[in-house]
Design a protein around this nucleic acid. Structure first.
Length: 532
RNA sequence: GGGCCCAUAGCUCAGUCAGGCAGAGCGACUGGCUUUUAACCAGUCGGCCUAGGGUUCAAAUCCCUAUGGGCCCGCCA
C-alpha cells in the first residue's frame, strides 16, 4: 500500500509540478449572511496554502481572499425590509447602506463578521475588496481589452455555454450615475484613451462612465480577468461554476484566447448539508452563519470537519448530538500519543494558526458547566481540580461555546440542572437508599479529595460485607442487609435523585468530583432525612 | 434535455490519482468492580468494497453499463 497522503498535499504537489510560485485565490459575493458552507471554500484554500508553504518553503506563495462586493443586489432577500431595499436592487453591494447602520456598507455588514470568523479560524489571506480594485483602476486596461474583443468574447460565451448575447450585450456594465444601478445600463461606445464609456440606462438617463470605478466587468469575464491580473494558479470553487458550460468553462477559454494566460487549477468541492434539511443556501433560508457556528463549536473542530473530508464529498453538518461527537473525535485525535503520519497531518492542518483553544474536552465541559451552573469561577475551580491548568480566557471561551450549545442545540438527555434545594423526588427514596446516602456521606468525608475512581469504587463496595461503607450502612439501616440483595444501581439512582431529581445522570464518579465534598455531604444527609 | 459528484463495517469516513493481504474512529459487545449509568483502560465482534460485464498474473482501485443518492446548468459555495 502506498503512503496515504492528505488531499491538500496532493493538490499542492500537482500545482508545484506546473508552477514554481503559486497564487491561490478564493472569494464570495457578500450579498447575505455568509454561512458555514462558504467556510468550506476558505478552509479548503487555506489547507492547500499551508501545504504549498510546507512543500515549497522557498517559493513565493500567496493567498488572496477576494470579496465580490461590486456585484449588484439581485433582489430583496427575505431578511431585508422590502420597502427599504426595493430601491437598491441592482446597485453594487458596496454602494448600498448597511442594514444595521454599523458598517460602512451593505457588503461590509456581511463581510466584516466573516473576516472576523476567518481570523478566529486562523485563516489569514490577503483580503481584496473588488470595489476598491475597480476604483483604483486595477482593471482599466483589461476592461478596454474586453471591450475591444467584445465580439470574440460573445462568440466564446455562445460556443461554450450556448448563451445568446444580443446586440446590446457588453462585457462591461457601467453604474448609472442617476439611479445607481449597474444592471440596467447599455454601453453605446467607449473611449480607450480616456477610459470611459457612453451609456444609456433604462431609467432614461444617458451619460459617461469611467472604467476606473464607474462600473464592472460582467461575472463571466471578470473571473478570468482576475486570474490574468493576479496570476491565480489555484482556485477552489463550488460545483455551480464547475458545470459544463458554466463559468469555469467559459473562463478557461476567455483567459487563454482573450487575455493570453493560463487558467488556475480547479479544486471542486461539494456542498455542506445541514442536518437533513438539505443544502445550505442563502436563498432558501437553510443557513447557519459562521458566527452562529463559532459560538458553539471550537474553531479547530470546525476546521477538522472540513479538513478530514475530501473536497468532493458531501459534508452533513448537524449541530446537535453529531456536533458533540465531532468535537470529541477531534479532541481525542489531538490528544492521542502515537499518531500516524496521516493523523498528524490532519491535526496540523486543523490547527488554527495563532489561535489557542482550551484543552478541556467539550463533553467534560458540558458536565462541568452544568454543575457550576455557568458560574465561571466555579467552572475554573472544577477544571483546576480535574487537572486542567490553562488561562482563564481559554476556559471561558469553551464555557461560552458549551453554554450556547446547551441553549440552542443540546438534546434533553445532555441537559441537567443541579437543584439548589432537595428535589421533591427525594421523598421516594427507600430506607435502604437513605442508609446508603448517610454512610456514603461519611465515607466521602474521610477522603480529602476523592478521585472519580474512589467514588465509583465506594458505591460498589456496598456489596462487600467487610467494607466500612457496608458496615455503617447496616448501622444506619438498623438491621443486617443481605449482601446479595444489594443492588448498587439503586444507590446510583439515590445519588442522582438527591442532586438532580432524576434517576440518571452523568457517570457518577466523575460527576461527583465536580462538586465540593462539603456540599455533597450536606446534600446527601439532607436527602436521607427528607420527608415531604 | 445537457453535465458534475458520491456509493467501502451498525454510523462517519480513509484507502481509488500511482492495481499487490480490507483499514481507522465512533457505536455495539466483553473484561477492568459477580450487578448499564454520558469518564478512563484493555480486548472482541463487525465487510459479496451498490450491481453486472470487461482489462490484468493480480481490481475496492483502471474501462464500459446499470441502480441508488446529492447537486449544477436562470450566478447561493
Amino acid at each position: 500500500m502506498t503512503e496515504i497522503r492528505h488531499w491538500a498535499d496532493v493538490i499542492a504537489e500537482d500545482a508545484l509540478n506546473l508552477h514554481k510560485n503559486n497564487i491561490i485565490a478564493t472569494g464570495i459575493t457578500p450579498s447575505g449572511h455568509i454561512h458555514i458552507g462558504n467556510m468550506r471554500e476558505v478552509v479548503t484554500a487555506d489547507a492547500v496554502y499551508k501545504a504549498l508553504l510546507k512543500q515549497a518553503p522557498d517559493s513565493e506563495t500567496k493567498f488572496y481572499y477576494i470579496a465580490d462586493n461590486y456585484d449588484p443586489l439581485r433582489k430583496v432577500y427575505p431578511f431585508l425590509e422590502e420597502s427599504e431595499y426595493k430601491e437598491h436592487v441592482g446597485k453594487p453591494l458596496s454602494e448600498i447602506p448597511c442594514p444595521c447602520g454599523e458598517h460602512s456598507s451593505y457588503s461590509d455588514h456581511f463581510l466584516d463578521p466573516f473576516l472576523k470568523s476567518m481570523n478566529e479560524l486562523g485563516i489569514h489571506p490577503e483580503v481584496l475588496k473588488i470595489d476598491e480594485l475597480y476604483k483604483s483602476g486595477f482593471f482599466k486596461d483589461i476592461i478596454v481589452l474586453s471591450l475591444q474583443k467584445r465580439d470574440k468574447i460573445a462568440q466564446i460565451l455562445h460556443e461554450a455555454s450556448g448563451r445568446e448575447t444580443d446586440e446590446s450585450w457588453s462585457p462591461f456594465n457601467p453604474v448609472c450615475e442617476k439611479c445607481g444601478k449597474i444592471n440596467s445600463t447599455i454601453v453605446n461606445s467607449f473611449n480607450a484613451d480616456e477610459y470611459t464609456v457612453d451609456y444609456s440606462c433604462k431609467c432614461g438617463y444617458c451619460g459617461v462612465a469611467s472604467m476606473i470605478g464607474g462600473g464592472k466587468l460582467t461575472w463571466r469575464v471578470e473571473w478570468p480577468a482576475k486570474w490574468a491580473l493576479l496570476g491565480v494558479t489555484i482556485e477552489p470553487f463550488g460545483k455551480d461554476h464547475a458545470a459544463s458550460g458554466g463559468s469555469y468553462d467559459t473562463g478557461i477559454r476567455i483567459v487563454r484566447e482573450i487575455f493570453g494566460k493560463e487558467p488556475p487549477i480547479p479544486v471542486n468541492y461539494e456542498w455542506i448539508m445541514l442536518g437533513n434539511k438539505g443544502a445550505m443556501s442563502s436563498s432558501t433560508g437553510v443557513v447557519i452563519s459562521i458566527k452562529d457556528m463559532l459560538e458553539v463549536i471550537p474553531p479547530e473542530a470546525l476546521r477538522y470537519l472540513i479538513i478530514r473530508t475530501k473536497p468532493e464529498k458531501h459534508i452533513r453538518f448537524d449541530p446537535s448530538v453529531p456536533l458533540l461527537n465531532l468535537v470529541d473525535e477531534y479532541e481525542r485525535l489531538r490528544d492521542k500519543e502515537d499518531l500516524t503520519e496521516y493523523e498528524k497531518r490532519i491535526i496540523d492542518l486543523s490547527k488554527s494558526e495563532g489561535v489557542e483553544q482550551s484543552i478541556i474536552p467539550f463533553k467534560q465541559m458540558v458536565t462541568i458547566y452544568q454543575v457550576a451552573r455557568g458560574d465561571i469561577d466555579r467552572i475554573e475551580k472544577i477544571a483546576n481540580r480535574s487537572g486542567f491548568n490553562e488561562s482563564r480566557k481559554l476556559t471561558e471561551n469553551l464555557a461560552e461555546n458549551v453554554k450556547n450549545w446547551l441553549e440552542r442545540y443540546a438534546p434533553p438527555f445532555a441537559k441537567f440542572g443541579v437543584s439548589d434545594t432537595i428535589p421533591v423526588q427525594a421523598a421516594s427514596l427507600t430506607d435502604c437508599q437513605r442508609a446508603f446516602l448517610k454512610s456514603f456521606a461519611d465515607e466521602l468525608l474521610k477522603h480529602e479529595e476523592p478521585s472519580a475512581e474512589d467514588v465509583q469504587k465506594l458505591i460498589y463496595e456496598t456489596k462487600d460485607e467487610n467494607s466500612s461503607i457496608h458496615k455503617t450502612m447496616v448501622e444506619y439501616f438498623g438491621k443486617p442487609i443481605n449482601a446479595s440483595a444489594i443492588n448498587p444501581k439503586d444507590f446510583f439512582i439515590a445519588i442522582y435523585i438527591s442532586l438532580l431529581g432524576t434517576p440518571s445522570g452523568p457517570k457518577a464518579g466523575w460527576f461527583l468530583t465536580s462538586f465540593d465534598v462539603d456540599f455533597l455531604v450536606e446534600r446527601f444527609r439532607e436527602a436521607a432525612e427528607y420527608k415531604p
